[in-house]
């Protein structure tokens, strides 16, 4: 499945990108493994994952097009 990935906060520093498209990603655990291989520094960074604006905590099977955002700890206000 295709994933449209948006990276926020320090994750955009680590990857040098705000957005990415990744193909052949069957589930969110595979997405994390792929990213950790591409950017080993990501393993040291705490972040949450949102699928179409909803935070997901468990491995999730992806269907169709998927908008996934990676969210480091919030620091608004």
């Amino acid at each position: 499945m295709r994933v449209h990935l948006t990276l926020f906060g320090q994750l955009s520093d680590i990857t040098g990108k705000r957005e990415m498209i990744l193909d052949d990603i069957p589930d969110t655990a595979t997405l994390l493994e792929t990213l950790n291989t591409m950017y080993p520094q990501m393993a040291n960074t705490k972040f949450a994952m949102a699928l179409n604006t909803k935070v997901i905590k468990e491995n999730t099977i992806l269907h169709g097009d998927n908008n996934i955002a990676l969210l480091p700890p919030f620091s608004g206000g």
Partner: peptide, 13 residues
């Protein structure tokens, strides 16, 4: 104020 600081996906660089 407390909730928005904790819950809104906003980042300060």
């Amino acid at each position: 104020v407390e909730r928005l600081k904790a819950e809104l996906p906003i980042w300060g660089r």
